[in-house]
C-alpha cells in the first residue's frame, strides 16, 4: 500500500499517525458531528430545507458575490502581480508588503472600516449615493468586502509563476513578429492560467464562507442581502439546530469539492 520513496528516512509512521490524530480530534470528529446532527433529518426534510426559497436566495447571493469578488480579484490581482514582478517603481516594496494586509487584519476590523467607507454618509458612500448608487447594505457592498478579504490570493499565487516565466520567451515571440496581444494570448495565458484558476478558486472558497467582514456591511435582509453563514446563525438562534447543520453540511461539501479541485490544479502545475 505504501510506496516510500526513501527507505532511509525515518518517521513516516510517527508523523502520519500524529497528523491523522490531530486532524481527527480537531477537524474530522467535530465535522462529523455536523453530519450526525443532520442525519436526524430525513432526506426529504434535508432537501426541503436546502431548497427553501430563503436558503436558495442566500446560496445564490453568497455564490454570486463570492464569484464577483473572485473575478474582480482575478483582474486587479493579475494587474498587481504583473506590475510587482515586472516593474521597479517607487512604492513597489510598500505595495508588495501591504498586499497581505487583508490576511493579517481581523475581519471584524475590515467590516467596520469598510462600512465606515461605504455607508451613505461615509467617505466613498456619500459620492456613490449622490449619483444614486447604494454600496453598503447591498450585494455590491458584500462583493467589495469580499474583494478586500480575498485580495491576496490571486496576487500571491500568480507572483511566483510570473517570476518563473523567462522574459526571453515573450521577447522572442515579439521579435518573431507577434503583437503584444498575441504574446499575451499565446505565451502568457497558457502559462498563467492554472495558477490564476487556483487563486481564483481559493478566493471564491474563502468568499463563500466569509462572515466577520460581511455582516457589518450586508444589511442582512432575508432573501436579498442575507449570506449563507448568517443564515446558519439565524437558524441557530431560532433553536433550529437541524436546519443550521443542514446548511452547514451543504457549505462543507461545496468547500471540500472546491479544495479538491484546487489541489488537483496545483498538482497539475507542479508536474507540468
Amino acid at each position: 500500500m505504501l510506496r516510500r520513496t526513501s527507505p532511509v528516512i525515518p518517521g513516516f509512521g510517527l508523523t502520519l499517525g500524529y497528523t491523522l490524530c490531530y486532524l481527527s480530534f480537531l477537524v474530522l470528529i467535530p465535522l462529523a458531528a455536523l453530519f450526525v446532527k443532520t442525519a436526524e433529518l430525513t432526506w426529504e426534510q434535508f432537501v426541503a430545507i436546502t431548497t427553501s426559497a430563503r436558503v436558495l436566495a442566500a446560496l445564490k447571493l453568497s455564490f454570486a458575490t463570492a464569484f464577483g469578488a473572485a473575478l474582480l480579484n482575478g483582474v486587479i490581482g493579475t494587474l498587481l502581480a504583473w506590475v510587482l514582478v515586472r516593474y521597479r517603481f517607487p512604492g513597489r516594496k510598500l505595495i508588495d508588503a501591504l498586499i497581505d494586509l487583508p490576511f493579517a487584519l481581523p475581519t471584524a476590523v475590515a467590516g467596520i472600516a469598510l462600512t465606515a467607507l461605504y455607508a451613505p454618509n461615509g467617505l466613498i458612500g456619500q459620492f456613490a449615493s449622490a449619483v444614486g448608487l447604494k454600496i453598503a447594505y447591498s450585494p455590491l457592498g458584500i462583493t467589495l468586502a469580499l474583494t478586500f478579504v480575498t485580495l491576496p490570493f490571486v496576487v500571491r499565487t500568480l507572483q511566483p509563476v510570473l517570476a518563473d516565466i523567462p522574459r526571453e520567451v515573450e521577447e522572442a515571440a515579439s521579435c518573431l513578429g507577434a503583437k503584444p496581444l498575441q504574446v499575451f494570448r499565446h505565451v502568457l495565458v497558457p502559462a498563467l492560467l492554472p495558477a490564476w484558476l487556483t487563486g481564483f478558486a481559493l478566493a471564491f472558497a474563502r468568499g463563500v464562507g466569509e462572515y466577520g467582514s460581511v455582516i457589518f456591511i450586508a444589511g442582512n435582509m432575508p432573501g436579498k442581502t442575507e449570506i449563507l453563514p448568517l443564515l446558519i446563525m439565524v437558524k441557530l438562534d431560532q433553536y433550529d439546530y437541524a436546519g443550521a447543520t443542514a446548511i452547514g453540511v451543504l457549505m462543507l461539501v461545496v468547500a471540500f469539492i472546491l479544495l479538491l479541485l484546487i489541489n488537483l490544479l496545483q498538482r497539475y502545475i507542479r508536474t507540468r
Partner: peptide, 21 residues
C-alpha cells in the same frame, strides 16, 4: 419599506443613527 434588517435592536439603531439610513 425596510431597507436594512439587522439581527438585533442595537444594530438597527446604529444603522439609523450612525449610518443615517
Amino acid at each position: 419599506q425596510v431597507p436594512v434588517l439587522d439581527t438585533g435592536a442595537r444594530g438597527s439603531t446604529i444603522t439609523f443613527v450612525n449610518n443615517r439610513i
